[in-house]
């Protein structure tokens, strides 16, 4: 009986009996529907990028702190968030955390933003840490010889050089974050992917057309970001040479 419930559900082998084609005339119909999700996708991306970068700097700097407790704690956060999947984290924050601890993290939109920001913040904190360490030791020594405080050394000398090294990788992660936003439909946010899925479930024969357009949506959104990464790479090549 129990085993029966574990039987493969029939959608596992999606049968080829469903035939469909990409229908040009449907595009005009599908396009405005998908547009309705654009706002959510873009706003989640912008907010999670902002908080993700913020988190990356906080965690990256904590990893370099002299305080061992802070360092270990941050290391724990980074490993947990890098070592588990984003989708599970999303569900944890949405279902498990409120039920276990009675903490309401806010609307679905905020939960999506927090999950993506914490996950990518963990990855990007390693970029922050690595870039700061990659600034030559002589720079810190020269700043010390000019009697700068440790805060001034970081703000005026180390970070401006380190940020330049971070830019290309930050750009790459921005594109990845865009793609990660498509997961938020699973916690009930109405983004592009959500509307695509609605259209498909209404009329399965539209699936090829819908998903082609969804792909195009994400690709067009990613284009300016790809351009931004190129730009960032050329900026970072200037300026840091010794």
């Amino acid at each position: 009986m129990f085993l029966q419930s574990l039987r493969k559900p029939d959608w596992v082998s999606f049968p080829s009996k469903y035939k469909g084609v990409i229908k040009i005339n449907v595009i005009a119909e599908v396009f405005p529907d998908l547009m309705r999700g654009l706002g959510v996708t873009v706003s989640v991306l912008i907010a999670s990028a902002f908080f993700g970068y913020l988190m990356a700097f906080i965690a990256g700097l904590c990893r370099l702190s002299n305080n061992i407790v802070l360092r270990k704690f941050t290391g724990f956060y980074i490993e947990v968030f890098r070592g588990t999947s984003l989708i599970v984290q999303l569900f944890w924050l949405y279902y498990a955390v409120p039920m276990l601890f009675g903490i309401e993290l806010g609307s679905n939109w905020w939960i999506g933003v927090i999950a993506i920001a914490l996950n990518y913040g963990a990855y990007m904190s390693e970029i922050v840490r690595g870039s700061i360490l990659a600034v030559a030791k002589g720079q810190t020594e020269a700043a010390t010889a000019l009697n700068m405080s440790s805060f001034q050394r970081m703000r005026l000398i180390i970070l401006p050089q380190a940020v330049r090294m971070m830019l290309p990788e930050f750009g790459n992660y921005l594109i990845q974050m865009l793609k990660a936003t498509s997961l938020v439909y699973l916690i009930g946010l109405n983004d592009i992917f959500y509307y695509g899925n609605i259209l498909r479930s209404n009329d399965l024969s539209m699936a090829p057309t819908v998903y082609l357009l969804v792909l195009l949506f994400y690709f067009i959104l990613a284009l300016p970001l790809i351009f931004l990464v190129r730009k960032a790479e050329s900026i970072s090549k200037k300026g840091v040479a010794s």
């Binding site: 030559a136 002589g138 020594e141 020269a142 700043a143 050089q161 300026g239 840091v240 040479a241």
Partner: peptide, 8 residues
């Protein structure tokens, strides 16, 4: 010895 000027 190696100048250590601030490159930025």
């Amino acid at each position: 010895q190696h100048f250590n000027l601030f490159p930025h």
